[in-house]
Nucleic acid binder design. Structure first.
Lengths: 196, 196
DNA sequence: CGGGCGTCGGTGATAAAGTCACCGAGCGAG
DNA sequence: CTCGCTCGGTGACTTTATCACCGACGCCCG
């Protein structure tokens, strides 16, 4: 398409709220976390961009000429390609496959947002936390994350997470270590995640 | 593009969660409200589709072949055009103006979702309610809505809205009538909406 | 006009969630 | 080992949400 993919080390902030937008980001490898930060410092994870996806934070910027409204952080080392605005528009016009890819990303983001809203607005905290654990475990039975990070995932406070995890541990659903949560009974967690 | 715009009376449910998707909706006139409903019956307003915009709930469906995940209700009488999937894809390929319009709608939805998440996850209830009132007043100084509806807008409960409105009334910010709220001090409300 | 009835809103009681502050435990660096 | 930092546990409190109930209003109809 254009521009060579370039490596970006984990921990890099690709963009922050208020930044002007430089180009369209297509991710080849790694995980990009997009978050929203409140005035008081609280932070929620909006979604993650996976390999093969395009970052749509960028999309809104390019289309409307707006600045970024959220923060993008490289969760792992990345391999990403930055496509200039003109090239992006041309590819959208000419390249069927590229269009399909962007559409897919848009649909995925919508689904993510809907999930997030449903979680935050309609779901009790225990189920929300169970969902976050299952999501972050990605099929495995262990999550490497601090309570602080889980608070970001659940749009809640660190103390709230600590207490709920303690309750889960009492019931034998999880085991908590420093910086890691082991899922002892993923089935029960999944049931809790579904049934509220 | 295709298909004639057709009138739809207020109150019509255009789609509900789980429905298969029939086509791509382009709105000419009126206001379409898209909501998410919980198992327990609680409902939040995700966003509204305005004239000239496309309904992106439809978008995700067509692109990914998924069913609807939310509910679409005609808030007023509508004039809408339904574009078959094939026509939609062709227009996206060929028609620059159509593409620009769809992109605009996507960007708008993203902004709406971000606002919603920010409201629900990062903002205290009084500010959230103030924002909802200002948004629904659309520059005017009166909102025609029941407390129930405002609960949907703020992703909260009816009783919570009642109490907060009573407090606003005490402070002289609003005056409450049956089915209507008068904004007596929009400036103060705006300040509250901004500063949390 | 005067009931009957459905929606709307006020309110008390209680539970859940979030906030704040503090402290001790674990871990790594020097 | 000790310093210093992050991590997590916990008590006390505030805010928000939920549940249940009831009176007020509007409307239709006899």
């Amino acid at each position: 398409m254009s521009g060579a993919p370039r490596p970006i080390p984990a921990g890099t902030v690709l963009f922050r709220a208020g930044d002007p937008c430089r180009g369209f980001v297509l991710l080849h490898e790694g995980s990009l976390r997009v978050t929203l930060t409140a005035a008081n410092g609280r932070e929620v994870v909006l979604y993650r961009v996976a390999p093969g996806e395009v970052c749509l934070q960028t999309f809104s910027c390019l289309v409307e000429g707006r600045d970024y409204s959220a923060r993008g952080l490289a969760e792992t080392d990345l391999l990403a390609e930055v496509i200039p605005s003109a090239d992006f528009h041309r590819a959208m016009a000419d390249d069927e496959a590229f269009r399909a890819r962007v559409f897919g990303a848009v649909a995925q983001r919508f689904a993510d947002f809907e999930r997030l809203v449903e979680d935050v607005a309609l779901t009790g905290f225990p189920a929300r936390l169970a969902r976050a654990l299952l999501r972050l475990a990605r099929g495995g039975n262990s999550v490497r994350a601090t309570h602080e990070q889980l608070a970001g995932e659940t749009a809640s406070g660190r103390a709230v997470v600590s207490r709920q995890l303690a309750r889960f541990a009492e019931e034998g659903l999880v085991e908590t270590l420093r910086g890691e949560i082991r899922l002892c009974d993923p089935g029960a967690l999944a049931r809790l995640a579904r049934d509220g």
